[in-house]
């Protein structure tokens, strides 16, 4: 089923320095993303889930090269993204676009919708000839389900869901091959979320886009994703097909995460066993030694605090998928 690899991340690392004192000396590092590797295939959706602070948004920004990496390699269609400069990098950006989480702050309030969606054409003038830009913007508005006549309106005249559609229209304006969606529905009302999720699915079918769908809502991610990666404290702890992750998770963190998600069905109330994790996520400035999850893990043993388990194929009962746990074992938790 999977097509050719379009985006390949190898061992991506991003550390932010912690500076202190009058001389702003670096006294430590926040390890936001610490060695993440994955492949994205043409036309598929890769979901990235994790709790706040796990580095999933930083990862999304690194894929756009909005953040310069501390280490690692990113290849798009065989081209090394991080070594490109100037015009070559600009050309690459046409193929990788992003939709941000907050539709309220990611649109310039002083520009009209036409200016916002048309801005990519100013930066990439060869994409659409000048005379045809307005018409193209109207086509895009129509594509995302907005009234093309509203091209001269300002963002504040739209609701949250409509603004997110504007953000999506801007994201697909240049016909990218990869669209990174950073929590695109989290800020929306429940009844509007489904509209945007359905729109993203429709666009994928029509335009053949590959999505990196970053979200903390595991139900939405399951709905939209073909493959899913689970992150914890800057590392990918489990990666596999949607069915492998949700039906046969082998990493204790994934199991705990899934078991904690409430299911909208009261008849299941006492049938699901919840794995309640104690404590909070440790600070990424000072992550635990060995397996980063060992401080909260219900399976932890002495080895976990010294050996960092690699993300490799481990058996899940039916086959095998990648998991970073010494004691990986499939367990149905939903």
């Amino acid at each position: 089923m999977p097509g050719e690899v379009i985006l390949k991340a190898e061992n991506l690392v991003k550390y932010y320095p912690i500076q202190a004192g009058v001389l702003r000396r670096t006294v430590g590092q926040v390890k936001a993303v610490d060695g993440v590797s994955f492949e994205l295939h043409k036309g598929e959706t890769l979901g990235i889930v994790g709790e706040s602070g796990c580095g999933k948004s930083t990862l999304g920004r690194m894929l756009m090269r909005l953040e310069e990496p501390t280490g690692g390699k990113l290849t798009f269609n065989g081209v090394d993204v991080y070594s490109q400069r100037g015009a070559a990098m600009r050309r690459l950006r046409r193929d990788i676009q992003i939709v941000f989480q907050d539709p309220y702050t990611s649109l310039n309030p002083r520009k009209t919708v036409g200016d916002i969606i048309g801005e990519p054409f100013e930066i990439h003038p060869d994409a659409v000839p000048k005379g045809g830009r307005r018409r193209r913007v109207q086509e895009l508005l129509d594509l995302v389900g907005l009234n093309p006549e509203h091209i001269n309106r300002y963002p504040h005249q739209f609701s949250g869901g409509q603004r997110q559609r504007i953000g999506i229209a801007r994201g697909v304006a240049l016909n990218p091959k990869v669209l990174i969606c950073d929590e695109p529905v989290s800020a929306l009302d429940v009844s509007v979320q489904a509209q945007v999720v359905n729109l993203l699915e429709k666009l994928q079918d029509e335009l053949g886009l590959a999505y990196v769908f970053i979200a903390h809502d595991l139900s939405v991610v399951r709905h939209i994703s073909d493959r899913v990666g689970v992150m914890y404290l800057g590392k990918m702890v489990e990666l596999g097909d949607e069915d492998q992750i949700y039906s046969r998770p082998t990493h204790p963190y994934t199991q705990a995460l899934l078991s904690a998600v409430p299911v909208p069905d009261p008849t299941l109330r006492n049938t699901r066993r919840q794995i309640v994790l104690s404590g909070d996520v440790p600070s990424p400035a000072n992550p635990p030694s060995g397996c980063r999850f060992h401080t909260r893990c219900f399976k932890a043993q002495a080895r976990c605090s010294t050996d960092d388990p690699a993300l490799v194929l481990r058996p899940d009962g039916e086959g095998a998928h990648e998991s970073a746990c010494h004691f990986a074992e499939a367990r149905a938790v939903i």
Binding site: S159, G161, Q162, D189, V190, S191, V192, Q193, A194, Q195, V197, N198, L218, S219, V220, R222, H223, I224, E242, D243, Y246, L258, V261, V263, P264, D265, L268, I334
Partner: peptide, 24 residues
Amino acid sequence: KGLLDSIPRLDQKGQKLTAIGGLP
């Protein structure tokens, strides 16, 4: 009914999401 039909469920895959049209 619209709300219940519009939310994805963790324990199901492949369900169709029927969005409520319009806005509050």
